[in-house]
Design a protein around this nucleic acid. Structure first.
Ligand SMILES: [Zn+2]
Ligand SMILES: [Zn+2]
Ligand SMILES: [Zn+2]
Ligand SMILES: [Zn+2]
Lengths: 133, 133
DNA sequence: AGCGAGTTTGACAATCATTATCAATAAGGA
DNA sequence: TCCTTATTGATAATGATTGTCAAACTCGCT
């Protein structure tokens, strides 16, 4: 049976408190800094569980790290600033349909998909673009 | 200046010979099995270069490995069988436009996107589904 | 063909995120 | 409260990827 521990709750809360995506390492560091004695392995486990249960979204950063984020509800995708990490959830039925179509049209079943858009947010764009340096 | 070595050529050819995506480790193993004395680090470097030069596509497997594949030309996405690795290149202007739109509509610039569909191919679907096992 | 500066290679060490261990702890039903 | 057993966490192990650096090689030049 699944038990309730303060650790799992702590991870859930820490995740909720974040704006964008965080790595397990990052979240653990944050918790430790906040005084929690929670262990690293536990954070990994808790995040993996949350992701399975649908309470968290997960994706791979370009560097290969697994990133997590508290997930509102339902299936959606993300628009992520690769400079400051700002994340915006986006829904796009059109893309969902397209993915299904592409899959079945090619004889594929049990289709899943990875759809994420990375870029520079409004604010960060200004700092990168101006100087034609 | 960039020099031509048999190693780089070997990697390019080995990659062309593959059907789906391969990991650097996998490609290296294959080359070694074929009798080549090429080093692992070199394969990593060659693949990274090919990816930058646009001669290879790269993506992260769900397990976090970097996978590479000889890339025909131009920007496109993939439909990948998560059982046998069969890969189909797909183009979808609609998705490209959508990604751009989502980005700019939210003030993002320099948008890139990750769009891949995973599923079970025709053949693999049969072996997984039948027995309600 | 022979030379030499500058690249590239490759064996091996170093990183680094993630997973496995496993004894100690604590959750929750009886 | 007591017992069973899931969970925790310090630490070791794993495994992919990158860094190191001397030796080998490329290629323009003579
Ligand atoms: Zn930003
Ligand atoms: Zn979707
Ligand atoms: Zn491709
Ligand atoms: Zn298949």
């Amino acid at each position: 049976m699944k038990r309730n521990t303060w650790q799992r709750e702590a991870v859930r809360e820490a995740l909720d408190a974040r704006e964008g995506f965080v790595s397990a390492q990052g979240l653990h560091a944050g918790l430790r800094d906040a005084g929690s004695p929670i262990g690293l392995a536990t954070v990994y486990r808790a995040l993996a569980d949350l992701a399975v249960e649908g309470e968290a979204d997960s994706l791979q950063s370009p560097e290969g790290e697994s990133l997590y984020r508290a997930c509102s509800t339902g299936h959606h995708h993300h628009l992520i600033c690769r400079n400051c990490g700002l994340t915006i959830e986006i829904e796009a039925d059109a893309v969902e349909r397209w993915a299904q179509q592409v899959a079945s049209r090619n004889g594929f079943t049990q289709a899943q998909h990875v759809v994420d858009v990375f870029g520079l947010c409004d604010a960060c764009s200004l700092r990168e673009a101006p100087g034609t340096t």
